[in-house]
Design a protein around this nucleic acid. Structure first.
Lengths: 338, 338
DNA sequence: CTGTTAGCGCTTTCAG
DNA sequence: CTGAAAGCGCTAACAG
């Protein structure tokens, strides 16, 4: 039933107004949730809009509102399946709440400032950072522009930004306690040479727990990168060292899979018989038949909920003090532990 | 050196103009690539802008330009690492070209129309679809609104939209020829019960090539889903069938990994000795030590380049006939073939 | 090269 | 509840 006007191009609220025989304001109100329009008027407008194929121009709307429904997501390390799960869940929640996520993949090393600047030009109403912790300066700038920043699994910072973390400390603790409970006598920690904040916390908690509950301190082996290859590399160091070891905590599943494969390839230390291994994150690959990795799960859905909740709360109350949400983790036992 | 005015809020071009002692137009021109401004003026403007912390409001700019730099990416199946690589590369290219990608994860099954509608409200200047082929109606609508659509690895459609495909036909052919060349006598095809367009083409080409070059036709086994579990499921069917078979083509690496693990778990058909297997896509996991999957590679960087090129070309020439870009593929031999 | 003027499409007071 | 009018921040035509 589309009635092409003479002039092509997108249909505006004025077109709809004319056809419905009302004013632009009436049209606007019809499409503004919670505005007062007579049911009669509303009906006429809706009908005209449908006939014409009208769509609100959100850009124009944002211009007056001073706030768009655009939200930036700054993400690095998309090769790690865990990161992907995070951003997928976050995007979905955002869209459910009628936001539109702008995805900004960032180099792992690169300073997120630049990318955040790019977002600011688009009047995003919020920025979610899952890459490196952005410098304080840019956070301050966002805040002073009224753009909330939510940091996911990032270090604390001296700026009023909200954070969502999973309970990294507990990850390390649970890993250590589980391995010891399963009878391991000499533990090892596998991590990356330049650990991010989360990894650092996991490491420290693990090492501390081992120190507290076991006579032998855990040994530490590292790979250059926080990925599959890094895990394999660390295992090579471990095997070369010829030191006794019967239980490993890998700070991420992504590294753990590399470690596990390297261990199996080598063959001297069958898992879990002579070597037990626990990862962290519960990426889908951990559950694959070929791996069956025991790990510590964090629920990316809950994480996404928390992130979006943080954002919404902040919109409602821009001047509230910065908050930190810590999400619980749980052990998932599969076949790499006894 | 930020000079807070009395009135807070974002700095506008007028603020900069005043401070630099010029008109708003001069400011606008300074920030418009390829506009003519006297170097002197430009300098003054830039300085004032920096002092004030000015940022162009792209939303306002888009409103006059009638075209934003927003580009929608509609993606499903983000659990498949290959999809993730695609969208990561595409996002990066887009950002390099100063676009901003809006990520719309879609349910695999769901009709992309709705999601595209959400994008249209934001005056996106293009839509890239890697999920299911959207219905013709919505494509028509995009086109008539001047919003180019680029389909990635999707079926052709009766609407003027550009497509980027990899050479799926060659994938199937190469797989068949390679397996036969390596001495396989009885081939099998593993695919999903409801194959997407790409998979269908790969299947058909594989089956056809086998029919042409081998006396025994290939057998087909399917899993319910196009994923790891689906691959494993198909292998179970294959093993249960008790039919002879010494070479498998899996239509995606993602399925192939599940197939490989199931085969190893079972143990009766060691790979590659008694069973050779070839996947397709070359996801990173295929190269993992634990898998070493022989596969057919498509270069996601080239794909991203082609997608963005299609978009740019279309901007330059909106009325050109629809194009299809087909990207070459190549065999990567690892350890699941002899 | 520069400033003035007139909108882009929408929302939002403010009277009626 | 409704319409008229003003303006969000920017750019594009046009004279100068």
């Amino acid at each position: 039933m589309k009635n092409d006007d003479d002039k092509a191009g997108p249909v505006t609220s004025l077109d709809v107004a004319k056809r419905a025989g009302v004013s632009r304001s009436a049209v606007s109100r019809t499409f503004t949730p919670g505005a007062s329009v007579a049911p009669e008027t509303r009906k006429k407008v809706l009908e005209a809009a449908k006939d014409l194929g009208y769509r609100v121009n959100q850009l124009a709307r944002s211009l007056t509102n001073k706030r768009s429904a655009l939200v930036g997501i700054v993400a690095a390390n998309l090769d790690n399946p865990f990161r992907v799960e995070q951003i997928e869940q976050i995007s979905r929640r955002l869209i459910e709440q009628n936001f539109r996520p702008i995805l900004m993949p960032a180099e792992a090393s690169e300073d997120p400032s630049h990318v955040i600047g790019l977002l600011l030009e688009y009047s995003v109403s919020g920025v979610i950072v899952t890459s490196d912790t952005p410098p304080q300066a840019i956070c301050q700038e966002c805040v002073s522009l009224g753009v909330p920043v939510v940091l996911v699994n990032k270090r604390d910072i001296d700026a009023p930004v909200d954070r969502v973390l999973m309970d990294n400390e507990n990850c390390g603790r649970i890993a250590a306690e589980t391995l010891l409970r399963q009878g391991c006598r000499q533990l090892a920690l596998i991590t990356s040479q330049s650990p991010s904040f989360s990894l650092e916390v996991r490491q420290t908690a693990f090492l501390q727990t081992v120190a507290d509950q076991c006579e032998r301190p855990a040994r530490v082996f590292t790979g250059r990168f926080q990925n599959y290859e890094g895990g394999a590399e660390a295992v090579h160091h471990l095997l070369q060292s010829d030191q006794v070891c019967d239980g490993i905590f890998c700070v991420t599943d992504y590294m753990a899979l590399g470690a596990l494969d390297a261990l199996r390839m080598d063959g001297r230390k069958p898992v879990p018989k002579l070597m037990q291994i626990i990862g962290c994150d519960d990426i889908r690959q951990a559950a694959w038949q070929g791996y069956g990795l025991t790990t510590i799960r964090q629920d990316t859905q809950k994480l996404a909920d928390a992130v979006v909740a943080a954002l919404l709360t902040r919109f409602a109350n821009p001047d509230a003090p910065a908050t930190t949400r810590i999400l619980p983790v749980s052990l998932i036992e599969r076949s790499t532990t006894l």
